[in-house]
């Protein structure tokens, strides 16, 4: 749930939107927010599944320390989504284990 009105912080106001894709679904994020925040606003909480027991993991510390919220972002695994800002056109996937990876041609 987005916090649009706040007794101390005031109104969030109109914020520029950014389109990102999470596991194939296009969602509208707000410019400047983290991937985690954009996902929470859509009630998406599973970031990855662990390698051995395939358990779900999501946001935990929110400041980039614990690495529980890592996902595959634009093909790169292990991206900490709580401290990575959304960018227009970003493709985000739930990470299975250590993820999959293919070298990009540059």
């Amino acid at each position: 749930m987005r916090v649009e009105k706040h007794p101390i912080l005031g109104d969030a106001g109109q914020r520029e939107t950014v389109n990102i894709t999470v596991d194939g679904r296009v969602i509208q994020a707000r410019k400047g927010e983290s991937i985690s925040a954009a996902m929470l606003a859509e009630k998406l909480r599973i970031c990855r599944h662990t390698t051995k027991s395939k358990e779900a993991r999501g946001l935990f510390c929110g400041i980039g320390q614990c690495t529980d919220c890592v996902m595959q972002v634009n093909g790169v695994p292990n991206v900490r989504t709580c401290i990575t800002e959304v960018q227009e056109g970003m493709t985000i996937c739930t990470q299975e284990g250590v993820g999959t990876w293919e070298a990009k041609d540059e």
Partner: peptide
């Protein structure tokens, strides 16, 4: 003295 370092877990490469 040998120095080494280790990365985060990464897909098989």
């Amino acid at each position: 003295r040998g120095t080494a370092m280790v990365t985060q877990a990464f897909p098989k490469v």
